[in-house]
Computed example of a mutant assay.
Amino acid sequence: MEQFDIEVAKQLEIMDKLLYLQAEIERCQSIEKQLIELENGTKLLSVQNEIKEMKEELLSIQLLFKKQTEETLRSYKKSAITSA
């Protein structure tokens, strides 16, 4: 079960990153909306670029989370077989 516990801890770390990035994207999108309303082109472009970068990072972390989930399940199955 030790390997399973390690995998779960990794999952929790990745989930924290996912939640942080999602919150940051929402924050930036709110700023983006405000800038659109104010028609502030220069700052708007900067915020849009930041949103794009964070979405790319979010996708990367989501893929890592999926991979980590699969690894956690394999670890759990392996520990269940060896302890049976």
Rank of each mutant, 00 (worst) to 15 (best):
L45Q: 11
L21P: 02
G41Y: 09
L59K: 10
I51Y: 03
Y76D: 01
I14Y: 04
L18A: 02
S75H: 01
Q22N: 15
I51G: 02
K67F: 04
K52Q: 15
L18F: 00
L12S: 11
L73E: 11
Y76W: 08
E2N: 14
L58Y: 10
V8C: 02
K55G: 01
C28P: 00
I14D: 00
S60R: 11
Y20L: 13
K66R: 12
E7G: 00
Q29D: 14
M1T: 11
Q34H: 10
I51T: 06
Q62T: 06
E70A: 11
Q3I: 13
E26C: 07
E26T: 14
A80Y: 05
A9V: 05
A23Y: 07
K33V: 06
K43S: 08
L58T: 02
K55H: 03
K43R: 15
L45N: 12
L38I: 04
V8Q: 09
L64Y: 07
I25K: 02
K33D: 12
M15W: 05
L58N: 04
Q29G: 12
Q29N: 15
N40D: 15
L73P: 00
R27A: 12
D5C: 04
L35P: 02
I25F: 04
L35S: 03
I36H: 07
E24C: 06
R74T: 09
A23H: 09
S46M: 12
L35Q: 06
E39S: 13
C28Q: 10
S60F: 05
E7S: 03
M1V: 10
K10C: 07
I36Y: 08
A23G: 10
F4I: 11
Q29F: 03
M1C: 08
E26R: 13
Q48K: 15
K17T: 13
L45W: 04
K66P: 01
A9N: 07
M54A: 08
M1P: 14
E57W: 03
L63R: 09
T42H: 09
Q62W: 02
L64P: 00
E13V: 10
K77F: 14
L35D: 07
I81T: 09
L45Y: 06
S60D: 10
I25L: 08
S46E: 15
L44G: 01
L73W: 07
S75Q: 03
R74A: 14
K55N: 06
L18T: 00
T82V: 08
L21F: 11
F4T: 13
D5K: 13
E26W: 01
K67C: 04
I25T: 03
Q3F: 06
Q68T: 09
G41A: 15
T82Y: 01
K77E: 14
E57I: 06
I81P: 00
D16M: 03
E71L: 08
Y20I: 05
K55R: 14
I6W: 06
I36G: 06
K17L: 12
E32Y: 01
K77H: 10
I31E: 15
S60K: 12
E56Q: 12
A84F: 05
K55S: 10
K17I: 06
T42I: 10
T69A: 09
A80G: 00
E53Q: 14
E26P: 03
E26Y: 07
E24I: 06
S79A: 13
E50Y: 13
R74N: 15
E7A: 11
L64I: 10
S79D: 08
T42C: 02
S30I: 07
M1F: 10
V47H: 05
Q29I: 02
E70Y: 07
L58D: 04
A84D: 01
K52T: 13
G41R: 14
A9G: 03
